[in-house]
């Protein structure tokens, strides 16, 4: 596909969504349903990945630093690594697979079975019925899932550090506080918000523009996951450059 044409199509889709925001009665109940579905539906995988991440980060920190530097640094390392990087990025990548693939497959199937055409033929805006609820649900729920992941990962890191490295609660808490900036928490949420935008917009676009039957749905689904994962990694760099200024 011509990249310029694709950019135009993407811009058209976003414009339609902006226009569709006036249909509050249509998108609001669907956004609530969708938020519940992706929030609750993704909770298990987010808890699983974040607890393992926190635990492994604590173990590796202990392996690298104990004996050389004060033990409380493990607390700093676990907290900062999780909140600044691992929490949002791992949740983003996992949800790009889970939510992104689902959205692209759902919308792609609706496209090739003419359900989206049917909605348009009834004088109803697909953006209000299908796109806005999905995008808003992601923008609302993914930052929340990132915050949950941050808490769980730091918690499991704390438990792991205590049980395997023998660090005291006071040392871990001191370490967690000593290099902490209030911006760190916001940075995690901001990253979650941008990743949510990337996942939802890319997967909706890929699904919405699906062509050529089952093969096309497969292509859109893979494309949505790959593109949004790459975008998450790019955004990770850009946001670090823009927001984190060395003191």
């Amino acid at each position: 596909m011509d990249p310029l044409w694709a950019v135009g199509q993407f811009a058209g889709m976003v414009l339609d969504m902006v226009r569709g925001l006036a249909d509050v009665k249509v998108w609001l109940p669907r956004t609530v349903d969708e938020s519940w579905r992706i929030g609750v539906g993704s909770l298990f995988i987010v808890l699983l990945i974040s607890s393992f991440t926190g635990g492994v980060t604590a173990l590796q920190a202990g392996y690298q630093f104990t004996g050389n530097i004060p033990i409380y640094v493990v607390g700093s390392l676990v907290t900062e690594s999780v909140v600044l990087e691992l929490g949002p990025v791992l949740v983003g990548l996992i949800l790009a697979g889970r939510i992104g693939a689902r959205y692209a497959a759902e919308l792609g199937t609706m496209r090739v079975t003419e359900q989206i055409d049917a909605l348009e033929s009834l004088g109803r805006a697909p953006s209000s019925y299908l796109l806005i609820p999905r995008v808003l649900a992601c923008l609302l729920m993914i930052p929340v899932l990132v915050v949950i992941a941050d808490f769980v990962a730091v918690g499991t890191g704390w438990i792991m550090a205590k049980s395997t490295l023998g660090i005291s609660n006071q040392d871990f808490a001191y370490g967690a506080r000593v290099y902490w900036h209030p911006l760190d928490g916001w940075y995690s949420v901001i990253k979650g918000f941008f990743f949510a935008g990337a996942i939802s917009l890319i997967s909706c676009y890929r699904g919405f523009t699906t062509k050529q039957g089952a093969e096309g749905v497969g292509r859109s689904t893979t494309g949505a996951v790959v593109t949004s994962s790459i975008l998450i990694l790019l955004l990770d760099v850009v946001l670090a450059k823009l927001i984190l200024k060395p003191k």
Binding site: T113, A118, L119, S121, L122, G123, A125
Partner: peptide, 23 residues
């Protein structure tokens, strides 16, 4: 324009070949 097209479409019923029901 968008709104006028939606209004026109509301006066036209379209029967799709395979039903195109919202599953």
């Amino acid at each position: 324009k968008h709104g006028a097209l939606s209004k026109l479409r509301a006066t036209i019923g379209y029967v799709f070949q395979n039903g195109a029901l919202f599953d």
